[in-house]
Simulated assay, not measured.
Amino acid sequence: MTIRLGIVGCGAIADDMHIPTALSVKQVQLVALIDNDIEQCTRLANKFGVKQTAGSIEEIAGHLDAVIIATPPHVRQALAKEAFQHGLHVLCEKPLANTVAECETIIKAAREAERVLSVGHMFRFYPLRRQLPDLVKQHGLGKILRVIATEGKPYSWPTVTGYTVRRDMSPGGVMINAGIHTLDSLLWWFGDPADIRYEDDSIGGLESNVRLWMQFPDNVEVYFRQSRTCDLPYRICIEAGNGSLIFGTNSVTEYSVKKNGYERNHSCVNPAVDHISCWNEQLCDFAESIVQNRKPFVTGEEGMRVIRLIETCYALKRSRPLPSKAPIPGLTW
């Protein structure tokens, strides 16, 4: 069975990832692009040779089995509900929605419609992240003690709508937009944190710098530093009793192990796979979950889990008094 697919939202992530992936995965047929910006929708359709365009899901629903929702997150709740009402399965970009309440509404709608809801936490398909707990054991590194994760550079994503810096479209800035990948992995590996300390540089707008300290079960400590104004290493370091495992935030397979005074490079997959093959795997998993009537690899409940953590962090920030003006750039409070 080939899944007839529509992509809702014709912004940068559709252009860079979802459309090329849909055209390369044999389990799906990309039928249409959907966006209320008809000019942008037509431009991408012409670029990729997609024959049909539509201004809404309703216009094209009868020709589809499923949709990828790749819009800004503030409209995903309404669009997902509409898709389920038309009997369509949904792969939703991360974040699933802006709030836990919106996530719950989407999950309920999927359940009532008896349709698949998958969330695009694509880093879960990276072999390195999937195998990380086993790799720590294979290299004899012992008990994981702490994780130090940093990522940052001046913001340069070619957004079409500008939603990542607009308070009317997003409840937060760099953490919910980009930090969500690392946070999702941490929850996946270690469970829910027992203790959280959070700081950012917002004084009422959207944060550009974040510092987050968490204590996970089994006394695993995590420090996460993120920025979209400062240059920081894109690196995750897993410190354990007998050594460390280190990899780049965007690494698919490559990592290094520091042990007994030596650091050696490794790959968890041979031959190495790349980002594109992981994107393909995500879409294949979605299509196969529809055909096989099974849960997708990343469910709506998993997508909501990281939003709950982010909401908790933002609530902690709101509970404290704010300075009257921003201090030194990069400073958090």
Rank of each mutant, 00 (worst) to 15 (best):
P323V: 08
L141Q: 11
V160R: 14
I69L: 05
L30K: 03
N177S: 15
G6W: 09
A287P: 12
E254T: 15
E302S: 07
L30P: 12
L245M: 02
R320W: 13
W189H: 10
S118V: 02
D274V: 03
H74R: 01
M1C: 05
A54H: 11
C268E: 06
G87T: 07
H18K: 01
D134L: 10
E39W: 07
E221F: 10
A326W: 12
C268W: 04
T161F: 11
M169Y: 13
V67Q: 05
Q138Y: 05
V100K: 02
W279R: 08
G162I: 09
L331T: 07
D15A: 10
K295G: 09
M122I: 15
G49D: 15
R129P: 07
L245N: 02
N36I: 06
H275S: 08
N250T: 05
C10M: 06
L79E: 08
V28Y: 06
L5H: 04
S267Q: 08
E311D: 08
P171C: 11
T99H: 05
R111A: 15
Y198P: 02
G172H: 02
W157P: 01
D274Y: 03
D16N: 07
Y234T: 08
M122T: 12
V222G: 03
M169S: 10
K47A: 11
T105Q: 14
P171T: 07
A101M: 04
N46G: 12
V306F: 12
L283R: 06
L232V: 03
M169G: 00
D134V: 15
L322A: 05
I69S: 07
A101W: 00
L128D: 11
S24A: 15
R115P: 12
K81P: 01
I144C: 12
V8Q: 03
S24R: 15
S208P: 01
A22W: 04
Y255N: 02
N36L: 10
V8T: 07
R305A: 13
E239G: 08
L5D: 04
T53V: 15
L232C: 11
L91T: 11
E263A: 10
H74S: 11
Q226I: 01
I307E: 15
R167Y: 11
G172K: 05
T71W: 02
Q131V: 01
S170K: 02
I38R: 15
I176A: 01
I328G: 00
D134G: 13
I180M: 10
P95T: 14
L132N: 05
S324A: 14
S227Q: 02
V252G: 09
S319D: 13
P158F: 05
G248W: 03
R167A: 15
V28P: 01
L187K: 03
G205Q: 12
V25Q: 03
A66C: 06
N270D: 06
R235Q: 15
E59V: 12
I180Y: 06
Y163R: 03
V100L: 01
F190D: 01
C10F: 01
P327T: 05
F123V: 13
G248A: 10
F125I: 02
M304R: 12
Q40S: 13
A80N: 06
S251L: 03
S208E: 14
V269T: 11
L128W: 09
I38D: 15
T105S: 14
L30S: 10
F84S: 13
R264Q: 13
V100T: 12
K317F: 05
E59S: 14
S208H: 11
